[in-house]
Design a protein around this nucleic acid. Structure first.
Length: 560
RNA sequence: GGCCCCAUCGUCUAGUCAGGUCCAGGACACCAGGUUUUCAUCCUGGGAACAGGGGUUCGAAUCCCCUUGGGGUCACCA
């Protein structure tokens, strides 16, 4: 029997090893967070390694983005690639694609010891066997057809350059996996077949590279998601064949969608498809995406739209894309410390009733014994509530700095068009009603509008505020405009006292009677920051211009 | 389908390892009131779970078994 015996005397080295085939998603981020926290809490090292052995799907761009995401989350690594600057630590290189000669050494060792063998099966032959197994409702296992070729011939054909893979010769015995979260599990003999450890392109497969690198980089702990649990048997076997020690394994529960399905990038397309269907449209909304692209995408249910197109289409349809990747949460205006806090709560808890904590706390308190065994559904509502709480608790200067940073990145037009004082006013007025950084911008496009471009579509709340009541809101607006024109100075305080007095005299002290028509007049809609702040942000001149245009727009046909 | 793992409110979870203090606690969501110039907040209250069945025990959310349900995996992807 094979098993891993965790040893506890080695120095703690954890690693996060993303495959750079796309954006870092929340599941990966949580794994990274736990790995980081464990290393930090145990006076250990945190290694970042890029697993780019899939030549077709990997890109350095994706690796760089992943590193940016980790940095944004506040997770720093002691060893790993250092962006453009090279690498940090002595166990590099930290890109697997640059470690081929290292793998080759160990590959040769296995081949010569007959613990692995060259196999020349064609992909078609393998596919046929797989399909057959499936149709017979049998689990597919490689049948060792490759071993029917004599040993010398295998080496000769491989040396002659014939296309082949290398398979691990799996011993015929049960494998016991010891996991720090899930406990002990036994895989029966025969459950693990002779899996491929080197692909036809000469690159090692994940299983081989991960074992060699973890050993060479001194990883004492291997933390990853539960989807890797069964793979652990393969890794234990390779470790034994190569004479490596077994690291301590811990598998974390998966993070699922609220409906229990697996979270994937496709969910974004899914959300937009649903919206398209609900809207009953057959061509894309004007100015969103190319009609040809749209039609093709709509026809193929598995097709994925380019991310930029997806965003354009979603905003045109008024749907929100589900956040999946770290970058999605950043774009939506979540605070990195909140994302970390919430991620940690999916699969781990500090106990008692404590929920709010920072990464320093996590580093100090994170432990494997409190890791959940069950998959967690990702509750964006709760994340949003956490984000709101964090924003409300934030110092105004800090909030201003964060919003400015976010704006520079995602809403440069605000930063360019608004004077710094005006921007500060917007931020201060928005803080207590913002659940995300992005809301400051999303909710205040009226501020950027040209005064001549403001429009007043007569929606239900607009009708109510402007046209109902006796006198109507429009009439009150007509009356109050001279007050606004002359109030001195034009600031929040004097506007409040002046308009307060005016409301006392003209509408029974009900400020709302005049606040709403004013708000609609200057923003075009019924929602904005407190009315006095709203007016001050705009300034007297622009406020008056918008009021005049609004009055004209709501002019009764017969005159009143 | 084979193999492996898991199971507390709608959701994340505390409690489980060392059975009694649990007619099960917190948070988010939801519902009902209240505050508020819009929106968003905020305040008060409320409903809401030990998957089912068998054991073991004086006593089971906690230990054991079965059933059911959920997840993972079965690639020249990681």
């Amino acid at each position: 029997m094979s098993t891993n015996h965790p040893s506890t005397d080695a120095p703690v080295v954890t690693r996060f090893a993303p495959s750079p085939t796309g954006d870092l998603h929340v599941g990966g981020a949580r794994t990274a967070l736990f790995c980081w926290a464990y290393a930090r809490g145990h006076d250990g090292q945190f290694v970042l390694r890029i697993e780019d052995t899939d030549q077709k799907r990997s890109s350095t761009a994706a690796a760089n983005e992943a590193m940016k995401d980790l940095a944004w989350l506040g997770l720093d690594w002691d060893q790993g690639p250092d962006g453009e600057a090279g690498e940090r630590g002595d166990n590099g290189p930290y890109f697997q694609s640059q470690r081929l000669s290292i793998y080759e050494r160990f590959m040769t060792q296995l081949l010569e010891a007959d613990l692995a063998y060259h196999a020349f099966d064609t992909a078609e032959a393998l596919d046929a066997k797989r399909r057959a197994a499936r149709s017979e409702k049998r689990a597919y296992r490689y049948d060792r057809a490759g071993l029917e070729v004599p040993r010398e011939e295998r080496f000769a054909r491989a040396a002659a350059g014939e296309s082949h893979v290398v398979r691990f010769r799996t011993p015929d015995r049960p494998v016991v996996i010891v996991d720090a979260v899930l406990g002990e599990a036994t895989l029966p003999a025969g459950e693990v077949d002779d899996f491929i450890i080197r692909k036809a392109d000469g690159f090692p497969t994940y299983h081989f590279a991960v074992v060699v690198d973890d050993a060479l980089m001194g990883c004492s702990h291997v933390f990853r998601a539960q989807e890797h649990f069964n793979n652990t048997a393969k890794h234990l076997l390779i470790q034994e064949a190569l004479g490596f020690a077994h690291p301590i394994y811990a598998h974390f529960p998966l993070i699922m969608n609220p409906d229990g399905s697996k979270m994937s990038k496709r969910d974004k397309d899914k959300a937009v498809r649903a919206a398209v269907k609900a809207a009953g449209i057959e061509s894309p909304p004007e100015g969103s995406v190319d009609p040809g692209v749209f039609t093709e995408w709509l026809a193929d249910k598995k097709a994925q739209l380019d991310h930029r197109d997806l965003i354009a289409l979603a905003s045109a349809l008024g749907v929100q894309l589900p956040e999946i990747n770290v970058q999605d949460f950043r774009r939506s205006g979540y605070l990195p410390e909140v994302v970390c806090n919430f991620l940690a709560l999916n699969g781990w808890s500090p106990g008692d009733d404590l929920e709010k904590f920072d990464n320093a706390f996590l580093a100090e308190h994170f432990n494997l014994s409190r890791v959940q065994k069950t998959a967690a559904r990702f509750d964006r509502d709760k994340l949003l509530a956490f984000n709101l709480d964090a924003i409300q608790a934030m110092d105004p200067d800090e909030f201003h700095a964060r919003v400015l940073e976010h704006g520079r990145h995602y809403h440069p037009e605000f930063v360019e068009q608004l004077a710094p004082e005006q921007f500060r006013l917007l931020v201060d007025a928005s803080r207590e009603r913002s659940k995300t950084l992005d809301e400051v911008f999303r909710a205040n496009h009226w501020l950027l509008l040209d005064d001549e471009a403001v429009q007043w579509p007569v929606t239900k709340p607009v009708r109510k505020a402007m046209l109902k009541g006796e006198p109507t809101g429009r009439m009150l607006l007509e009356q109050v405009r001279s007050v606004i024109e002359t109030v001195e100075p034009f600031d929040s305080r004097s506007l409040e006292s002046t308009l307060g007095e005016w409301a006392e005299a003209h509408c029974d002290g009900n400020l709302g009677r005049i606040a709403q028509p004013l708000r609609i007049a200057v923003t075009g809609g019924p929602v904005s920051p407190p009315i006095f702040d709203t007016l001050v942000m705009l300034g007297r001149e622009r406020t008056m211009r918008r009021i005049m245009r609004c009055l004209k727009s709501f002019e009764p046909p017969e005159g009143d």
